[in-house]
């Protein structure tokens, strides 16, 4: 059967050493069994590597940063839509998600479908709310305290014990073993990310990740567990391997059922030596390593495309275990005129 043509736009083309998922999602969509996908890139900066992957993206448009507001994003997307006739957009960047969610009706009106979580789902798994979220849904989350001032550290330490993990509101974490070290780290993290900070119970163990897809009605469609084999100095996976672990899949299933999650997600997990599993973070989109899921037989992005189009999707079968990904760096060659066009006109 010949595949039907379809235009899909993606963000997250920043395939850098702290990568967005856009390029991996693009690659997965190219292997969609149902659709002959024409890909449009949506980038925020003129040197996002994906822009220059001309064999993947037919064209790329610059978007205004989320800080410019949802109205500015809508106007830009309406312009892009006039040129490209996009059927589905898959956002891959956390900070833009609230805008896309808010704009879903307006985008639908111009013919663009999304398959994204609700605003309430998005907020419930934010770092600040994760502890309450875990309690509410009986999901294992390390005990967490919000810190609004340095003096809150002592209180948190009594409740959580040493060492503590201090986390910035949006990014970055430090493990501290004493009150003095905690106070120093508090100052640094607060200066960088603002208040409140989070103090989390320290849990030792092995880091695991699950890439998942859920249908928004409580059903988990796919969960692919992965263990990182090497990481960069930013803690990002540079190589990983798929696992067979019904416990992890069950956790993803409980997450999908409890939240009625709609779309792709990633669970960042930790398994202690005793075999206890904690959820450290929940990312509201596909991870950058999602192409490994395709290799394991779960083309989650292609399935999400069908969900966005309102087509029925059933649960995937078994995960092919022992599939490895090894990331590599590759220097693409472009010309200054390419840069001028994307930076100056916003299109390439």
């Amino acid at each position: 059967m010949s595949r039907r043509p379809l235009t899909v736009a993606l963000t997250g083309l920043n395939a850098t050493d702290s990568p967005g998922a856009g390029v991996a999602v693009a690659r997965a969509l190219r292997e969609s069994p149902e659709y002959e996908v024409r890909l449009i890139g949506l980038s925020y900066e003129a040197l996002e590597p994906g822009i220059y992957l001309r064999e993947l993206f037919a064209k790329t448009y610059l978007l205004p940063y989320p800080a410019a507001g949802s109205q500015a994003l809508l106007e830009r997307l309406e312009y892009v839509q006039q040129q490209e006739n996009i059927a589905v957009i898959i956002p891959n960047f956390d900070a833009e998600l609230p805008h896309f969610i808010r704009l879903e009706p307006q985008l639908r009106a111009v013919g663009i479908r999304l398959f994204v979580p609700t605003l309430a789902q998005l907020e419930s798994r934010e770092k600040l709310n994760l502890s309450a979220f875990g309690t509410a849904h009986a999901l294992p989350v390390p005990a967490t305290h919000a810190l609004r001032q340095a003096t809150d550290l002592a209180v948190a330490a009594i409740a959580l014990g040493w060492p503590l993990v201090l986390k910035g509101r949006y990014y970055e974490a430090q493990v501290v073993h004493t009150l003095a070290a905690a106070e120093a780290a508090f100052g640094q993290l607060a200066a960088r990310w603002g208040l409140p900070l989070l103090a989390q119970q320290f849990v030792a163990g092995q880091e695991l990740n699950v890439a998942g897809l859920a249908d928004g009605r409580g059903q988990l469609l796919s969960a692919v567990p992965m263990r990182k084999l090497t990481i960069t100095d930013k803690g990002k996976a540079w190589a990983g391997i798929t696992l067979e672990d019904e416990g992890l899949t069950e956790l993803a299933r409980r997450f999908a059922a409890a939240t009625q999650w709609r779309g792709g997600f990633e669970l960042e997990l930790l398994r202690t030596a005793a075999g206890e599993v904690f959820i450290l973070e929940i990312n509201p989109r596909f991870p950058a390593w999602v192409y490994l899921a395709v290799a394991a037989g779960h083309n989650q992005p292609a399935a999400l495309l069908r969900l966005a189009l309102g087509e029925g999707v059933g649960p995937f079968g078994a995960v092919a275990v022992g599939k490895l990904f090894v990331r590599y760096a590759w220097d693409m060659i472009a010309d200054y005129t390419d840069f001028q066009r994307i930076a100056g006109i916003g299109e390439l």
Binding site: A46, R76, A343, G346
Partner: peptide, 13 residues
Amino acid sequence: LTAGPLSKFGPRA
């Protein structure tokens, strides 16, 4: 021209 983000109004408005 920088690698930085687009202005709020986009390149054509």
